[in-house]
Amino acid sequence: MNNLWILNMGAVALLIGIGLYCLLTMRNTVKLLIGIEVISKGVTLALVASGYARNNLMVAQSLAITVIVVDVAVIATALALIININRHTKSLDVGKLTRLKG
């Protein structure tokens, strides 16, 4: 266990914490996606930092690339969904999405 790994994982915890805070407290749908992006950055850093510390960098990189590709697909779909919702509700407020409320 080296100091660089501890430093990196500390940053990972902060990034995931910031992303979770955004997801739990913000009302703007674009901001929620930004929160997901911040968490994704933390996950990418965690994978590569762990691979670097354990001398498994190649596998870690391939996993990080998988995370990035899946992230792009998720973000593209979610942004398309946001544009469609915005056409109907004329707002980006997540509090106004109440049509499915029972």
Binding site: N28, L79, N86, L92
Partner: peptide
């Protein structure tokens, strides 16, 4: 992803103001 975000913000610009706490 930045380009995708900016496109979405541009398309929803007029309705983008959400009052955050």
């Amino acid at each position: 992803i930045t380009v995708l975000f900016m496109t979405t913000i541009a398309l929803t610009r007029n309705d983008g103001d959400v009052a955050e706490s």
